[in-house]
Write a protein that binds this DNA or RNA. Structure first.
Lengths: 218, 218
DNA sequence: GTCATAAACTTACGGGCGTAACCTTTGAGT
DNA sequence: ACTCAAAGGTTACGCCCGTAAGTTTATGAC
């Protein structure tokens, strides 16, 4: 039936991959991460990211992953790291495009955050859903690896909020702490949107969250 | 080595279960849900809830679950439903104990919500994390089953916020919509706490979220 | 007592998974 | 030209999973 040489085991490798050059072994690492990210985007289910499925997609044998990742959680961590880099880039880009008014810059940041989550729900869920970490002690991923992840975007948010305070656009008395509160509101909205598409959202829910939490002056 | 009669297959049934009486077949259903909930609480990983693991814990054979649940997602839904009932009970209890001052009643509700999430992180994650639903079209669980789940507690929150407005304790102009915003803030905090224990929480983060979102008057 | 039937069991198949142990290709340096 | 290690492949073991098909047990109505 199949004219292929599927003689025995599960070498379900559709795209035979060209072997890398001598020093280029690390390029496979990036391909593995990209494949995992693609798998996540297509299936929307992080359970679909398994050593074998990733290997199949890359076009390599499953054990070949061991040379680059000790674990499946390690792959996850790499995917999440990359996603955070992308998120931070999108946030910075949005802030830069927003001009100089601190209030508009903060608004741009918040909306870019929400847009990112809405455009890539499965990625957002994986970044913050924390499902792949319960087996933490058994995996190669440490707790520090996780806590450091969101700090950059949070710092960006805190900076912009402080800008708003300095410009008189926000009445916050503790921008660093209120930035956390604001982020929590954004996260709640972003996460819930990423989880259930069907929810009776009131109109203008984003502003209803952002304006009070940022203590924006009317 | 094992003096047990493990003759062949995986009937790893440690606690031989007494067969139910004629009309009491539905009691096993409750036991299944309880076992799944226990499994979730102990492992903290909803992936650990599988047909076979649940069956092992109940003390029945895996296929016997089919008589009560068509799916593994169906078990999940039952667990989440029960958890929501429990949450609503806890919220009501807290509100009742809080006396008559609307503002204190609202505060009690919010803190009870956060406490529930902190006391049962894995349950909270499962209730709102939405990991078990990606394979939605393939399972017996419909989208309606999910959207209806949080409505009761949300309605309770909206009622209390309206009470606060009536008593002059809140400046909200649209309690129903602001209740959603307030819930999102609570959810963001609760979820993040349920996901990562290690996070640089500022002091009084809960009030920092609740007070602005509820538009509480100082 | 008998006996239909609810309640649950047994067996078995096919598949996916992680990973240990070993083997092959290939290109760079000599 | 030859080697040798990097990069990756092969095979295989053991485990767990969902579920289809048929079978046993014991309860309660007659």
């Amino acid at each position: 039936m199949e004219d292929d040489e599927n003689t025995g085991t599960d070498t379900g490798r559709p795209t035979a991959r060209a072997r890398n050059r001598r020093g280029q072994g690390a390029r496979l690492r990036d391909d593995i991460v990209a494949a995992a990210a693609g798998l996540l985007a297509e299936t929307g289910d992080e359970r679909a990211i398994t050593l074998r499925s990733v290997a199949r997609r890359v076009g390599i044998a499953a054990p070949s992953i061991y040379a680059h990742f000790p674990d499946q959680p390690a792959i996850m961590l790499a995917v999440v790291r990359e996603a955070h880099v992308e998120l931070n880039g999108a946030l910075r880009h949005a802030v830069d495009r927003a001009g100089r008014d601190p209030r508009e810059r903060l608004g741009a940041l918040c909306h870019a955050y929400l847009t990112f989550a809405q455009d890539h729900p499965e990625r957002y869920r994986t970044m913050f859903g924390g499902l792949w970490m319960p087996a933490l002690g058994e995996s190669s991923v440490t707790e520090r690896d996780l806590t450091d992840l969101g700090q950059e975007s949070l710092a960006l948010l805190a900076d912009l909020l402080a800008e708003c305070v300095a410009a008189g656009a926000s009445a916050s008395t503790d921008p660093a702490a209120d930035a956390v509160a604001l982020w929590l509101g954004l996260h709640g909205l972003a996460h819930q949107r990423a989880v259930t598409r069907a929810f009776p959202w009131p109109a203008g829910i984003a502003e209803r969250v952002i304006t009070p939490l940022a203590h924006l002056t009317t």
